[in-house]
Design a protein around this nucleic acid. Structure first.
Length: 255
DNA sequence: GGCTTCGGCAG
DNA sequence: CTGCCGAAGCC
């Protein structure tokens, strides 16, 4: 059934079926199958399922290929689609705008209001503006292993207090993702929201979008020691796994 | 019930 | 015309 589709993640297959009878005889229908076998028969359906994980903006459903980089408008930058700070071999880019994809949503552009100050030269701003609590969009993202099993989530140190409007528990999940995103996408220190900013009283008004939505925190020697321990244990587990597969020699970092 | 296949509508 | 999706028809 179907052939491997190179424009999609490994394991995705594409199938073309030609109609044999009826008024529409001769028409071909295109289907895709996920690695786990789920069938997809339209681009919106595929897009809903892949969500932010794959950028389908240039994907042509019928041919199964990424559309040739358009002449003028729909060009994507040749490089630096990844967020800053990411390593080249890891996809650490943040989720794409939902509205930029096939989701048609109107946008109102306000040119100017009398009395408002206009930010100078938006083109040269280091970072584009961010939506308040944009990190909520990271909710529910999970890492999967090759069998699509959900991997155990990391845990945040105790004492980090989320300031985003969430039920307890859910806020921690978003905060972890927000901090991970901040570490990957920004080269400036991650400090949380400044204590004096007023964010405690009214996060919706005072929160800074350039810092994850949590109270300011201090990192103690004990935190550092605990984290070193986590890294050490993880390295050891990786080493054991690689040795079991005969893929590595002993790591000199591990005594 | 699930899956395949075609009709038909909206853009 | 094409993409999408409801639903008839088949197993």
């Amino acid at each position: 059934m179907g052939t491997e589709c190179p424009s999609l993640p490994a394991g995705w297959r594409k199938e073309e079926v030609t109609r044999k009878s009826g008024l529409s005889a001769g028409k071909t229908d295109v289907y895709y199958y996920s690695p786990s076998g789920k069938k997809f028969r339209s681009r919106p359906q595929l897009s809903r399922y892949l969500g932010n994980r794959v950028d389908l903006r240039c994907f042509d459903f019928r041919s199964g290929k990424m559309a040739p980089a358009g002449k003028h408008k729909t060009r994507q930058r040749p490089h630096e689609t990844l967020a800053r700070g990411g390593r080249g071999d890891l996809n650490t880019s943040l989720p794409i705008r939902q509205t930029a994809s096939i989701f048609k949503q109107p946008v109102t552009k306000v040119i100017g209001h009398p009395g408002n100050k206009v930010k100078s030269d938006l083109q040269r701003e280091a970072e584009p503006p961010r939506q308040l609590f944009w990190e909520k969009r990271l909710k529910g993202l999970r890492s999967l292993d090759v069998t699509e099993e959900v991997l155990k989530c990391m845990e945040l140190p105790k004492g980090l207090q989320s300031l985003s409007p969430h039920s307890v528990g859910e806020g921690d999940e978003v905060l972890l993702a927000a901090i991970a995103a901040a570490l990957h996408s920004s080269s400036s220190p991650v400090t949380g929201q400044a204590a004096s900013s007023g964010v405690e009283k009214n996060p919706g008004v005072w929160i800074s979008t350039s810092q994850p939505p949590c109270r300011a925190f201090t990192i103690t020697q004990e935190h550092i020691r605990e984290q070193e321990e986590v890294v050490f244990r993880t390295r050891r587990r990786l080493e054991e796994a690689l040795l079991a597969d005969g893929l590595a020699c002993r790591d000199p970092h591990l005594s």
